[in-house]
């Protein structure tokens, strides 16, 4: 860190350049395969869903893995993002980007609104309260006939691989940068020991709400991408089972590990796609795998460790392991 003061643009270092290069390669390869028709629509959809689930998992991890708050209402925020972006696009004839931003902001606002009363609760109580709130959100959309109600809501398809991929990168970078800032450390201290954090001058309520709102915002963004990609949304998609699914990805990858969440989201999405022809058996296999992984590796695949490229930069005192 000491040499960073001398460096005019510390953001430009070898590690970040290599990460950017790798991202461009992944993006480019998929883009080329897609335009040549080698990747059919099903595989493209799987890749885009993987991007959406990465956003969901990483933002859930911010709340649960880093801040230590077991909230199971992510599907609710996703629903808000999906419906609100669709509302702007379909009902207001607004631009897609405007819809995505609006959806994410409304979800963040809902996060603050829900967070202030419920984040005082601990552990399982918070879990069940947020699960309930997520279900309330779903039931509101179920009864909201203006937005399609139970029959669902059609949204023109405007998202593609380019959008999904770079929005995913943006989300991961923002959350990663937050985690590696002093404000992110304040959130982590809540997970570690709430009373000690408070005694060290951290306003724990404030940071819980910030983490919750930031997490909700990206869940809303993911919902917006989903709605503008899938043609059709309906409330049933956003039930608490979806929240479970997201939580499972996070725990599978490792709580408190961003790269772990990415891995968890990709594994689950790809596994679902590979087993798509046998839907019931698919769920049974996923369930059994989940139980086995939890029994033999209860901290997830990566634990709190990050898979990182720090070996690319010679070790300096206090250097953080972020990717940007």
């Amino acid at each position: 860190m000491s040499n960073m003061g001398k460096n005019k643009l510390p953001i430009v270092n070898r590690k970040n350049i290599i990460v950017l290069f790798l991202l461009l390669v992944v993006y480019g390869v998929v883009q080329i395969l897609q335009s040549n028709g080698i990747l059919d629509r099903f595989y493209t959809m799987t890749l885009i869903l993987a991007c959406i689930y990465i956003i969901l998992a990483v933002s859930q991890n911010l709340i649960t893995g880093f801040t230590g708050q077991l909230a199971i209402g992510h599907a609710g925020f996703m629903a808000i993002g999906a419906y609100m972006s669709a509302f702007i696009v379909v009902k207001m004839n607004g631009p897609v980007v405007g819809g995505l931003i609006f959806g994410a902001l409304v979800a963040a606002f809902a996060g603050v609104l829900i967070g202030i009363p419920t984040l005082r609760l601990r552990g399982d109580y918070l879990a069940i309260a947020t699960l309930g709130l997520g279900e309330i959100v779903r039931i509101i959309f179920l009864n909201w006939d203006y937005l399609g109600g139970a029959t669902g809501f059609q949204v023109p398809k405007s998202m593609n691989w380019t959008w999904a991929f770079w929005l995913m990168v943006l989300s991961v970078v923002v959350i990663n940068n937050f985690i590696n800032s002093s404000h992110g450390r304040a959130c982590i201290s809540i997970r570690e020991n709430e009373i000690a954090a408070e005694a060290m001058g951290i306003n724990t309520t404030k940071y819980k709400v910030i983490a919750f709102a930031l997490g909700a915002m990206f869940a809303g963004l993911a919902g917006g991408i989903y709605a503008n990609y899938m043609f059709f949304i309906q409330p049933g998609t956003f039930s608490f089972l979806k929240s479970f699914e997201i939580l499972v990805m996070v725990v599978l990858g490792g709580l408190g590990s961003i790269t772990g969440s990415i891995l968890g989201a990709v594994i689950m999405t790809v596994a679902s796609a590979l087993l798509a022809d046998i839907p019931e058996l698919r769920m049974v296999i996923i369930a059994v795998l989940l139980i086995i992984i939890m029994i033999f590796r209860p901290n997830g695949i990566l634990g709190t460790k990050e898979f990182n490229l720090s070996f690319l930069n010679p070790k300096k005192k206090g250097e953080e392991n972020g990717i940007t």
Binding site: F178, S189, A196, M200, G201, I202, G318
Partner: peptide, 27 residues
């Protein structure tokens, strides 16, 4: 009541948070 799963240096950095000179957005 330390922040047990964090490095020693981070324990001290967290306590320094109230004097931090940049805001969330800059971070």
């Amino acid at each position: 009541r330390l922040f047990g799963d964090l490095p020693v240096i981070d324990n001290v950095k967290i306590a320094y948070h109230q004097h931090v000179s940049y805001n969330t957005l800059s971070g």
